[in-house]
Amino acid sequence: MKRDEVSELFAKHAPAVYRRARYLLGNAADADEATQEVFIRVLRYPQAWEERGQVTTWLYRITTNYCFNRIRDRRRRRELWEEHGCAQPDGPRGAPSAEDLTEIRKVLAVVDESCAAAAIYVLVDGMSHEEAAEILGVSRRTVGNLLDRFRKQSEALTAPPGTPPEPGGCPDPGAAG
């Protein structure tokens, strides 16, 4: 792809990638890095989205995957928990509040990828179950099931100590030991 084509694609789509990464990761530095990494991946393998003709949908998938992995990485470094005490401004109208985003990041850090992706698309992006199903490549019913599992897990995480967990929560496949 030529430089001017890259520049055109960047001008058209990068603000949306940055905006989502800013919401999901919570700070400008990580959103910068996410935007660069997402575009590098998308531009190195343009066949993946050129065939579909829907670069926006593909960018959502790549951005979600990248940000989810970054959130998981942070969990290990405990940045996410330290972030809790830092006041952040809310986004514009029609966007999730900073407090909600901080809370949901904590849950995203420990649930499995399918649950996390469904939660990001429906709860943060405000997609319909149908839209989330299309982008995830699953049925609408599966999206509903994934969200149910996500909610159970989030409730278990914030329940008072000693509360027995509900069955059906999301496992943590990344946990070792």
Binding site: R20, L123, V124, G126
Partner: peptide
């Protein structure tokens, strides 16, 4: 408890996507 849409948009409003 997470609700359907954290952004609290009016019903019928389109998604970000």
């Amino acid at each position: 408890r997470f609700t359907e849409n954290l952004a609290g948009r009016p019903a019928g409003c389109p998604s970000d996507l």
